[in-house]
Design a protein around this nucleic acid. Structure first.
Length: 566
RNA sequence: GCGACUGUAGUCUAGCGGUCAGGACCGAGGCUUCCCAAGCCUCUAGCCCGGGUUCAAAUCCCGGCAGUCGCACCA
């Protein structure tokens, strides 16, 4: 299949539209149309079902504009940007740090100003044509803006939703009553000012993410539900490049997947994607090579699917270690730790140095207080030959043991502070949306298109048609349409053209069932009064059910019961 | 950001200096007792945007925007 055909269908039928089309469009931006927004919502619902209800994770919704400090701490400001310099003559762009590589030991640590100075000082010219170089510009992939009037407060549109969770860690941790594991999910938009977005919905400048941040004890990367799924099979491509099919447990035991939690969420991701209609034959998990790993990750597996653009990453499952919380603790000076209580409090023997005030006072007079503090901040191990070496007023000073004594204290320690590790399954919603459409797209020989969406995801569940728009069939059909909508089943009424055309219209947008009201529905005496036909999208077969069982039947099928077994 | 190619109704497409820009599909209305895109009639709707060349531009030229493909980029 080719992406053009599907994109054309999406646009024609209202799944997605290129944004700002009347003004010529903007690359990398798409609007979700009426069918698209419902499909997107349905995908989010399944994801939420898996994490919030399935795993008991908690959900938040944080802001999209963040102050600069957040990205200084997260590393995005440094790691996510390059300094670019353009040649004044030929216009060729260069990485500024590459041009001064021989003039500085660490050119990538320099800011734009120092790079510019270095280029001026050493008369660095264009390596292509020898022309002079222009100003050094920072090119960061984050969208920049200002918070409030004036230009003093710089803000950025978030490139990932994750930071909103990390900066709220202290709140979330208290909310979870200071326990680990702590699972937090967030769905929302992210922004990346891509230099050249291509491939339709695959690389967007404004995109939707469903992110999960799971905070765990660094020394306990197990998972309670792991034993129930550990024999499930996964298609893996570890970083040695050799594809193999292994059970979760096999992969963990052989060290292919680092730990149980990571393995469990790889499996959960596979299960979720397949439930959404991603073809398992076109899905595998690939481990990142160390050089392609993000600046924050210690291990990372991508769910990749085969679509018309080739194997494409749609989910990334990373072990971010303690990177994010450590960084935010450092920059914000907030406590980002978990207090890990021991089963039994440990008794720790500690030797402390106590100053002898009665000796220190007469000897050191007004300096005595300061020296006391210096002595008491020393450790017992600092004592050499019965004396302490300290520095007072810039001069070394030897304090003999007549001025202090060593006391042994027994302290009770009931736990320790640890920085939690973060396991992050991050779902690219737009890419999943597109993959579901591609994998659902079927074409029969006669150019007839059927979108075989999972019923649970289909934007419209039931098409309602009177066989003819007359003889009271249309009134009856309207009644049934109301009946379904009132029961919360998204239905679509259509009485135009031929019946075949109406079925075709519904098939093309993935509607799983069509209800038809015919003359027998109204006819007395033949035992078929008040019954309607339900026609199945994939088999085109029909069954006849009483109207008063219709809602129940549709609900049964939405819960996964096959049409054939009704 | 660079290079090549491209841009005609909602979709697909013909026209490539000179008629009211032609068709197909979709869509809307109508006729046909009509369960899988049937047929017939009627209708709606288009030259990506801006500038230039020319008596005359959808057509040629320049710029922009967008798309496809390569290069670069892609946490």
């Amino acid at each position: 299949m080719n992406a053009g055909e599907l994109l054309s269908l999406c646009k024609r039928r209202g799944f997605i539209w290129p944004s700002f089309e009347i003004y010529g469009g903007v690359a990398g931006m798409y609007d979700y149309g009426p069918l698209g927004s419902v499909l997107k919502e349905n995908i989010i619902r399944l994801w939420r079902q898996a994490y919030r209800y399935g795993e008991g994770f908690t959900e938040i919704d944080s802001v999209t504009i963040n102050p600069e400090a957040v990205f200084k701490a997260s590393g995005h400001l440094d790691e996510f940007s390059d300094c670019i310099v353009y040649c004044n003559e030929c216009g060729e762009p260069f990485r500024a740090d590459h041009l001064v590589a021989r003039l500085h030991p660490n050119p990538d640590t320099l800011d734009a100003k120092s790079l510019k100075e270095l280029i001026r000082e050493h008369d660095v010219t264009c390596p292509e044509c020898g022309g002079t170089l222009g100003d050094v510009e920072e090119f960061n992939l984050m969208f920049r803006t200002f918070i409030g009037p004036g230009s003093s407060r710089i803000g950025y549109l978030r490139p990932e939703t994750a930071q909103g969770i990390f900066v709220n860690f202290p709140n979330l941790y208290r909310y979870n009553r200071e326990k680990l594991p702590l699972g937090v999910i967030q769905q929302g938009r992210g922004y990346r000012n891509e230099i050249s977005p291509r491939q339709g919905m695959i690389r967007l400048r404004e995109f939707n993410m469903m992110e999960v941040e799971l905070f765990v004890d660094p020394e306990n990367k197990t998972w309670p539900r792991y034993p129930f799924v550990k024999e499930e099979m996964l298609r893996l491509i570890p970083n040695d490049g050799v594809e193999r099919v292994m059970s979760l447990d096999g992969a963990v035991r052989e060290g292919v997947i680092a730990n149980e939690v990571l393995a469990y969420f790889i499996w959960l991701t596979k299960d979720l994607l397949v439930k959404m209609g991603v073809d398992p034959a076109r899905l595998h998990f690939r481990q990142h090579l160390s050089e392609e790993m993000a600046h924050y990750a210690t291990d990372c597996w991508d769910a990749e699917v085969l679509i018309s653009y080739g194997w494409t990453e749609i989910v990334g499952i990373a072990d971010r270690g303690s990177w994010d919380l450590t960084q935010h603790a450092k920059w914000s000076h907030e406590d980002m730790t978990h207090f890990k209580r021991y089963d039994e409090p440990h008794e720790v023997e500690q030797k402390v140095i106590k100053a002898k005030h009665s000796k220190l006072g007469p000897r050191f007079k007004e300096d005595a207080k300061e020296i006391t503090n210096l002595i008491e901040s020393c450790q017992a191990e600092d004592i050499k030959d019965g004396a302490l070496q300290i520095e007072h007023n810039g001069k070394p000073l030897t304090i003999s043991d007549e001025f202090f004594e060593v006391e042994t204290l027994i302290r009770k320690v009931s736990g320790e502070k640890v920085i939690p590790h973060v396991i992050e399954p991050s779902y690219g919603l737009d890419r999943i949306f597109y993959t579901i459409l591609e994998h659902a797209y079927h074409k029969r020989d006669d150019d007839y298109t059927v979108l075989k969406l999972k019923p649970i995801l289909a934007p419209i569940k039931v098409g309602v048609f009177p066989l003819m728009a007359r003889d009271g069939l249309d009134e009856k059909a309207q009644e049934i349409f109301r009946l379904l909508m009132d029961a919360g089943i998204e239905a679509y009424y259509d009485d135009s053209g031929s019946i075949g055309k109406r079925y075709a219209r519904m098939d093309e947008i993935g509607t799983p069932w069509c209800v038809t009201i015919d003359y027998e529905t109204l006819e007395e005496g033949r035992g078929k009064k008040d019954t309607v036909t339900i026609r199945d999208r994939d088999s085109t077969k029909q069954i006849r059910v009483p109207i008063d069982k219709l809602v129940k039947t549709i609900h049964t099928m939405l819960n996964g019961v096959n049409f054939e077994s009704i």
